[in-house]
Design a protein around this nucleic acid. Structure first.
Ligand code: FES
Ligand code: FES
Lengths: 141, 141
DNA sequence: ATATACCCGACTATTTTAGTCAAGTATATT
DNA sequence: AATATACTTGACTAAAATAGTCGGGTATAT
């Protein structure tokens, strides 16, 4: 089970946005430089964050992005969903009556994975961007 | 975050082994048919399970595999580690002093991912194969 | 005018996962 | 002894997912 760069970058970039938050928009160029993430990749990520109303953009010179609500109101789960980083532990489709191997009953491990998925999503639901800012030590970027 | 087929199959196959447990070894062919997993793929998986002392093998006709200890003593974490399905949430290497972007300090999200990794591994440590057998309903294979 | 910076879709390269193949060895049964 | 079963091993291939790039836009402050 791995967390993708895309998901990690999205949270990193938003945390950066929250940390350096002012009334002025922050450009992706700045975030790219501070966090060491490719600018082009960031653009792709922020389009999704914008579509999902997590950030608002300002175009043109001195443009950039700002959080659309308070950092403490943005859950990690929300961010990861926005960039299509979903948790998927089962091999079957949730709704269908078929199991992961095409049989008509669920496999013996199905409930375990279901529980796992819940366990992980729970974690993401409980944490928000604000937690990252206030809980951080000085030795981080 | 996705769980791979390999990891899922490994647990499924071992649960099958635990469920149909007798004094006689159980062949991969049987597991393959019951669980709908490719025989050739199962072979690959069981070599690793064997190397990690989770199962013991019997060669030749009427051969097959048996669990190496009681199902209740085999943790899911153990199984997943055996087939190289490790949990990896951070982008940096754990020991090095460098962050995930090559900088000399950890990024602001590092602790979050660390906690997440712990959270997931905790789950895998608490569950064992025995839980799957006793907790199952009749409507599973 | 011009430079900055968001916008957008398509594209490519890399890595990982999933699964197969070929050629073997050990053992029970006939 | 011959045969069929079934584990053993390493290499190989195909498919999918991830990571990241490219080109050509549009909007806006200076
Ligand atoms: S994971 Fe749902 S049936 Fe196997
Ligand atoms: S994840 Fe460890 S420094 Fe970013």
């Amino acid at each position: 089970m791995k967390l993708s760069n895309k998901g990690r970058y999205a949270v990193m970039a938003l945390a950066d946005l929250a940390k350096f938050n002012t009334n002025k928009p922050i450009s992706l160029r700045d975030i790219s430089l501070r966090q060491g993430i490719s600018l082009l990749y960031l653009e792709q990520i922020f389009l999704k964050l914008k579509k999902n109303k997590i950030v608002v953009s300002a175009r043109g010179m001195n443009g950039g992005y700002n959080l659309n609500k308070d950092a403490s109101e943005i859950k990690i789960s929300e961010v990861l969903n926005a960039v299509d980083e979903k948790v998927k532990t089962i091999g079957c489709t949730k709704d269908s009556k078929k199991g992961c191997n095409g049989k008509s009953v669920k496999c013996i491990t199905h409930n375990l994975w279901d529980e796992l998925e819940l366990h992980i999503n729970d974690f993401f639901n409980k944490k928000n961007l604000g937690d990252l800012i206030k809980g951080r030590n000085e030795n981080t970027i």
